[in-house]
Structures are given as structure tokens and as C-alpha cells.
Design a protein around this nucleic acid. Structure first.
Length: 233
DNA sequence: TCTAATGATTGGTG
DNA sequence: CACCAATCATTAGA
């Protein structure tokens, strides 16, 4: 008798054909062993292989989480977006920040990482599409900050780019720029790190290269235009 | 039912 | 190992 464990985790136990002495007149079973082995050996192997294959397929199917994707809760996306847009110049949450976000949103840390990975890519790829969202969350966090500190500081109400020379393209696609409150959001474009985050132009963070634009200026000149055409699917 | 949005996975890079 | 880019598979909205 032998036992082996294959890659499916199955225990293939073979006790059937070995050392069977009973039955036919008390003769040793060697003869029948040979016959049966010869007849069914290959079938046995085939069966085993196909079964194993099926198991592997099923396993991969059920273990593939993409097949049971759930959208995050409102709360989760809210929290994540808030962080993302209030750290637009450097949207790379630390491990602790990730844990914090995960806790607040009721998701796992790796889900937070996934989300930020996706968000960075997709934001960079098509900033125009996210302007409205950006304004909303930037305004929100700006309002929060204002409420937290001094209510009547800042917020002149005038629309001015922090560094006009730097922003070589600022959106004719102002479609989403509707309300005065949103002006507050513009105050956030100057990040404490001193790195310029043009809310309405392409990324120009050169310095250390990780969060800089991929989109060429021409690609976002048209409000509805979708240069890359998303290309997925 | 088609399509856009979106969370997760994969493969490649440094 | 974290990140990016592409892609997959599902969900939600038209």
C-alpha cells in the first residue's frame, strides 16, 4: 500500500490491488494483481489527472476574489477619497495611515493599498474626469480645516492660481467648477512639502519622479475628450 | 443589454 | 517589497 499527496492536496491511497491473498482458492494474489494493474493502471492515471485538473480549475475559480467583488461602502470611498484629494501632491499613505483608513472605512489594509494604486493610476490617466470629485473633496477638507482652525482665515474668494507660471495648462474644461466654495480648494494646491500640485493642470512633480504626470498636455485639453480611450476591456 | 466604474490580480521594475 | 500599468471580472447605471 502506498499513499501520495498530489498538488491538489488529495491523498491517493492505493490498497486495492496489493497483497490480496483471499478469494481464489487461497492462492497468492500476485497474478490478479498484475492483471488488474495492467488493465486499469492507465485509466487510473487518467482519472487522477482529470480529477486533479478539475479541482484546480474550480479552486482557482472560487479563490479568485475578482469574481465576488463588492463595491466599497459609501463610508469607505468617502474616507479614501478624502485622504487622496487632500494629499494630492503625494498620495502615498504610510502604513499607519493605511491602517487608519482601513479602520475608518471598514476594509482591509491591502484593500486600501489596492484602492490607492488604482486611484493614482486612473487619476493620472484621466485627470479631467476626476476634477469634479477633486473639487468636492478638496473643498470639503478645506472646509474642515477651516472649521477646525480659524474660520475666517484665508479664503479670499478670488480665483488665483498659486503659481501661474508653473501651470502651463489650466483647463478650459472648467465644467465642474461651479461654486464659490470651491475656491477654497485652490488653497490646497500648495502642499506643505513645497511641491506644487496644480489642481487644474497636469502633474509636474519632477523632483523624485514617482508621482508625476503621464498625460501629455494636449491630452486633457478637451473637456470630454478621452485620448487614451481608457483602453481597458 | 451595453457600457462605465471599480475592486482585484498579474507581470514587470527598481 | 511597494509600486505601476495593464487587464480581468463583477457591479451598477443608462
Amino acid at each position: 500500500m502506498w499513499v501520495l499527496v498530489d498538488k491538489c492536496g488529495f491523498w491517493w491511497i492505493n490498497v486495492i490491488f496489493l497483497g490480496w491473498n483471499g478469494g481464489f482458492g487461497g492462492k497468492p494474489g500476485y497474478f490478479w494483481e498484475g492483471v488488474i494493474h495492467g488493465k486499469f493502471g492507465s485509466i487510473q492515471v487518467q482519472l487522477k489527472q482529470s480529477t486533479c485538473e478539475a479541482v484546480m480549475i474550480l479552486r482557482s475559480r472560487f479563490l479568485d476574489a475578482r469574481r465576488k467583488r463588492r463595491n466599497f461602502s459609501k463610508q469607505a470611498t468617502e474616507v479614501l477619497n478624502e485622504y487622496f484629494y487632500s494629499h494630492l501632491s503625494n498620495p502615498y499613505p504610510s502604513e499607519e495611515a493605511k491602517e487608519e483608513l482601513a479602520k475608518k472605512g471598514g476594509i482591509t489594509v491591502s484593500q486600501v493599498s489596492n484602492w490607492f494604486g488604482n486611484k493614482r493610476i486612473r487619476y493620472k490617466k484621466n485627470m479631467g474626469k476626476f476634477q469634479e470629485e477633486a473639487n468636492i473633496y478638496a473643498a470639503k477638507s478645506a472646509a474642515d480645516a477651516a472649521a477646525a482652525s480659524s474660520p475666517n482665515s484665508a479664503s479670499s474668494g478670488s480665483f488665483q492660481m498659486p503659481n501661474p507660471g508653473d501651470s502651463f495648462l489650466n483647463l478650459q474644461s472648467l465644467t465642474s467648477y461651479q461654486s464659490p466654495q470651491n475656491v477654497d480648494s485652490l488653497h490646497r494646491v500648495l502642499h506643505p512639502t513645497g511641491r506644487f500640485q496644480p489642481l487644474f493642470s497636469t502633474q509636474r512633480l519632477d523632483a523624485n519622479g514617482s508621482w508625476q504626470d503621464a498625460a501629455t498636455p494636449s491630452s486633457i485639453t478637451s473637456p470630454t475628450g478621452d485620448p487614451g480611450s481608457d483602453a481597458s476591456n
